[in-house]
Structures are given as structure tokens and as C-alpha cells.
Amino acid sequence: MNNEQQNIYKNEYLPYIVRVGKITSWLSLPLIFIPALVVVIFFGARPDAGGVITGLVGLCSAMLAWYIVDPVTLYPILHIPGMYMTYLCGNSKEIRAPAATAALSAAGVEAGTEHGTIVAGISIAISIFISVGTMTLVAILGNAILAVLPQTVLHALNYLLPSLFGTMCMQRILLDPKSSLIILPISIALKFLSMNGFFKFLPFGGGYAQILLCVIAGVIVARIVHKDKLKA
């Protein structure tokens, strides 16, 4: 990139993205509580405060680690525009990260570079148009869709996520086989520990422990394996 292009990226593109991202993110917070307000005002609901707090504490504790781990781990792929969009629309690992990964590969640019940032912005926006469009159709047409799809296709959909995760995991392994061949057995061991209730003593049942420890293990292993790059 030449100086003019750098200037456009740093002084026009990024400030615009940050402004739009922050304003829409903060603005969205009251909007998502409108349905609750409507149910109270128009349908006379009187939700029990204790029930709401119990539900919130349960859900937030299950998700707490994810509020930080998810953005921190996916930032290298999503970058600034992708972050604002992904943490407004969701499905970070299932739809946004794969869409951005595929687009970066198709465009032949690296994640985290100026070009990679703009490609991430384009690709994640496209994935949002597709997912919102799909969910809108499903919400309107509902059960009619299920009646049309063959049983075999519906059955096969149950295996899409395992196949996707296996594919994406192997992509990571191929990019860094040394780290992966240590992290994978650690993940298996942590899974067995989790399955046998080893983490139940942790606050709120420890359901988050397996993935959190996998991330920590991944960071430590990568630092050890690539320690020569740390000094460069």
C-alpha cells in the first residue's frame, strides 16, 4: 500500500467503521428489550423479579467466560469491522468466522492486514444478509419449509456442525501442526475430565471450564513452540 492508501485506510475507513460500530452497538441495547416492555404493557405480564434474576444469573454465568474469550480468540480473523458486526448479529464461530476465513482465502489476503480487514468487513456483512434473510424466511414460512425438505436432507443437517468444526479444526492444525499436535491431546484429556465432573466444584458448575482451559493451553503451548519468534 502507498501513503495515500494508508491515509485512506487509517484516517477515513477505520474512524468511520469505529463510529458506526460504536453508535449502532450502544443504540441496540435498549432496542432488544422492547419486546419485554410490549409484553408487560399490552399483554399485562407481571414477570416475577426473583424468576428473572435466577434465569439471568444462570445464563450469564454459563456465558461469562465467552463474553471475553470469544472476541479475543476470533479478533485476528474478524478484525475491527467484523467484531462490531459479529457481536451484534452473533453465530461467531458457526457462520462469521468461516465466512471471513473463506473470503480471506478467496481474495488471497492475510488476516489482520489492511486488505484483510476490509475483506473481513465485506464478507461478514454478506454473511449477515444471508443469515438474516434465511431466518426471516423461516420465521414467516415456518413448518411449511420442513414439510418440503426430504427427510434425508433434514437428517443430514444434524451433521453439518460436526463436519464444519472438524474441517476448521484441521485447517488450524495444517497451519500450525507443532502446536496442534500438543493441544489436541490436551483438549481430549480436558474433555474426559469435564465428562467425569472434575470441574463441578467451580462456581456455577464449571461448564465453561473445558473450553476456557483449552484456550489457555493453546496460548501456553503456542508460546513455547514458537518461543524463537517471541524474541525476534
Binding site: T73, P76, S187, I211, V215, G218
Partner: peptide
Amino acid sequence: GNMNAVPIIGTGALIGVYCSLTVDRLI
């Protein structure tokens, strides 16, 4: 504080996440 560590940490964390998600589907 070591910026050289940032991409390494990112890579390691991503491997950890997808290994965990994948292992959940294996076991």
C-alpha cells in the same frame, strides 16, 4: 507487553477453541 506474542497467542487460542468444539463432537 510483547507485541510479537500477539499473533502467536491468537493462533494458539484459535486452535484451542476449535479443538475443544471438535472434541465435543468426538467424545
